[in-house]
């Protein structure tokens, strides 16, 4: 093919502005600086969180031997695990239906599924609270889990649907041609191909659930404290090195999950060589 003079090349001077690089540098320092400070101070020996004395891991030891924190972590994990499994399952089922053909009400269904993305969290939180009160639903871990499932569905849904959209339909036809019935096609052909999408969706749902604060704050009963709720409680009491330590761990968990998600979806892109 003839190359064209309008094509961009990476080593020209085109729209380049000299200060742009510095601007971007400063931006990334701004984006990560505060977190870096937080992580650094979590290893600070001093009780006064912002005065550096020497390196120590004692706040980690202290924080994680605190029973309340342990409980909060366990609660968070239970909520996130159950919510992730349910939301991913529901999202997968919905995505399988919604990606196939057009039908009346499809847009409406898509709209309802993405609703939790559009409604501000505080609105969902207070609405869910009043609803639980109206139906006398006891507040506790179960209520948190139910609320989390709701807003995890769209996050699980997005990557699954994207993966389905990139899938080669002829494979299913080939399967059907080779005497597989619907459920066998689903099990042996569609789901294996969909696996990276489902996994990515599950990761997003898990991240969102484990980080959630506002909705948990409103629908948690006494004794059902999740990690972000516990951290919030500590923050209200003032800056402390334990918060830094717990926050660092939570941050690293999210970081690991995001990175995993990123690599899965990068690989997905690579393997979608159809067309």
């Amino acid at each position: 093919m003839a190359s064209n003079i309008g094509r961009s090349s990476s080593n020209t001077n085109k729209g380049r502005i000299p200060w742009l690089k510095w601007w971007a540098c400063i931006f990334f320092v701004y984006l990560y600086g505060p977190i870096a400070v937080l992580i650094a101070f979590s290893f600070n020996d001093n009780r006064i969180a912002q005065v550096w004395t020497e390196f120590s891991t004692k706040w980690y030891v202290k924080a994680f031997s605190n029973e309340a924190i342990q409980n909060a972590i366990i609660n968070s994990l239970i909520v996130a695990a159950v919510a992730t499994v349910c939301a991913t399952l529901f999202a997968t089922m919905a995505a399988l239906i919604l990606s196939k053909g057009m039908f009346k009400g499809q847009t409406l269904c898509l709209g309802i599924i993405s609703l939790p993305l559009l409604v501000p969290e505080i609105a969902t939180a207070v609405a869910t609270l009043s609803f639980f009160a109206a139906i006398n639903f006891p507040l506790g871990l179960t209520s948190i889990i139910v609320a989390h499932i709701v807003f995890c569905i769209p996050f699980a849904f997005m990557p699954i649907r994207a993966r389905l959209a990139g899938m080669d339909e002829t494979l299913q036809e080939a399967g059907r041609d080779l005497y597989a019935n619907d459920i066998k096609v689903l099990w042996h052909i569609v789901l294996p191909q969909l696996k990276p999408g489902i996994f990515a969706g599950g990761i997003l749902a898990f991240i969102i659930s484990i980080d959630d604060f506002i909705i948990s704050l409103m629908v948690a009963g006494a004794g059902a404290t999740t990690l972000p709720l516990y951290i919030y409680g500590m923050i209200r009491l003032g800056v402390s090195p334990e918060i830094n330590a717990v926050s660092t761990v939570l941050f690293l968990v999210s970081l690991t999950l995001v990175a995993t998600y990123w690599f899965i979806s990068k690989k997905n892109e690579g393997s979608n060589y159809v067309h």
Binding site: M1, A2, S3, N4, I5, S9, N11, T12, N13, K14
Partner: peptide, 18 residues
């Protein structure tokens, strides 16, 4: 022929490359 540098020469004249 393709790849012989015609576009490159043009881009040099236009100033997109040095």
């Amino acid at each position: 022929p393709s790849g012989c540098g015609k576009t490159t020469l043009l881009r040099l004249i236009a100033g997109f490359e040095q």
